[in-house]
């Protein structure tokens, strides 16, 4: 694929606690300058994987290489390439923003005052940086968290559910900021999330994890068929309507409830379908495009077998 070595390389990673296998046989690579999504429902093993990536948890098996250094054997060299936020950015609330940054800067080498200043400017916290962190809003804490992750000029930024708890404006802001980072600093970003939509908006490539195993790795573009949209139909009578829809070649039914039918189909052919239904005396009481969920994606990827 790429000529340069991957920034992050994970091979056959497993973690077993007691008899329970939390993560099994995980393999993926993150390239330079790439935003990599790590998608999975809560409890799929995302956080455990991320903790292994940053050295908080020892893997039972497998290998992690960051910037060419194996994490287990050359921890210092490997971890120097990483900036991370694991879960919430838990900073010291009784220190000021600047003191927090200086605190972590003292744990690394080569962080100059100028660079700290630059980072503060980058995350736009200049005005409040000398106030105590406990007075910060969640969004500001998130930005300070990113600032501390950037302190060591990392090659890869690992963010665990970075949008958790942020309001829509905050999420948009964060998204723009990450894009800017990748664009200006040329670093790679590894983002975990349980929201498909978010990954779709931010990431280039994605690995999907479910029940501790990778079920898909590849470009986000190929994940969801862009020409198709999930459509919710309300029909009366529902059963005969379903029959009609199933006969159409471009319609792919995915789910049916007592009142609705969910299908995938191109958005521009709704009018055509509507006409056919009306012609067969079926009343259309509602048509609504809906956002695809992770659940749908799993259905799509595994043909329904993951639905429990």
């Amino acid at each position: 694929m790429n000529q340069t070595a991957p920034v992050l390389e994970v091979k056959k990673l497993s973690k077993q606690i007691g008899k329970r296998k939390i993560v099994e046989d995980i393999t993926f690579e993150v390239q330079k300058g790439e935003i990599f999504g790590f998608l999975g429902p809560n409890g799929a093993g995302k956080t455990t994987t991320i903790r292994m990536l940053v050295g908080l948890i020892r893997p039972t098996e497998g290998m992690i290489q960051i910037g060419g250094y194996p994490l287990q054997d050359q921890f210092i060299e490997a971890i120097s390439q990483v900036g991370c936020i694991v879960e919430n950015p838990e900073l010291y609330p009784y220190l000021t923003g600047r003191e927090n940054l200086e605190h972590f800067a003292r744990m690394m080498t080569g962080v100059t005052d100028e660079w700290i200043h630059e980072i503060i400017r980058l995350v736009e916290l200049e005005e409040r940086i000398d106030e105590l962190v406990k007075t910060y809003s969640l969004g500001m804490r998130q930005r300070l968290g990113i600032a501390q992750a950037l302190l060591g000029s990392p090659k890869i930024l690992i963010l665990d559910e970075p949008t958790n708890g942020l309001d829509p404006a905050g999420i948009r802001e964060l998204r723009a900021f990450i894009r800017k980072l990748v664009h200006e600093q040329g670093i790679s970003v590894f983002i975990s999330s349980h929201i498909l939509h978010e990954i779709q908006l931010m990431c280039d490539r994605v690995a999907i994890i479910n029940k501790g195993k990778i079920v898909y790795t590849g470009p986000v573009r190929e994940l969801v068929h862009e020409e198709e949209t999930r459509i919710e139909w309300r029909l009366d009578p529902l059963q005969s309507g379903v029959q009609v829809l199933k006969e159409l070649s471009f319609v792919r039914p995915v789910e049916q409830t007592e009142e609705h039918l969910y299908v995938y189909m191109p958005l521009d052919r709704i009018a055509e379908v509507n006409e056919q239904l009306t012609a067969k005396q079926i009343k259309v009481t509602g048509i609504r495009p809906v956002q695809a969920t992770l659940e749908d994606l799993f259905l799509q990827l595994t043909g329904g077998e993951t639905k429990s």
Binding site: G55, I79, N88, E90, M108
Partner: peptide, 14 residues
Amino acid sequence: SSGTIKLLLTRPVR
């Protein structure tokens, strides 16, 4: 308990 341990231990320090 505050979770700051995660920031402390993901630094290039043993």
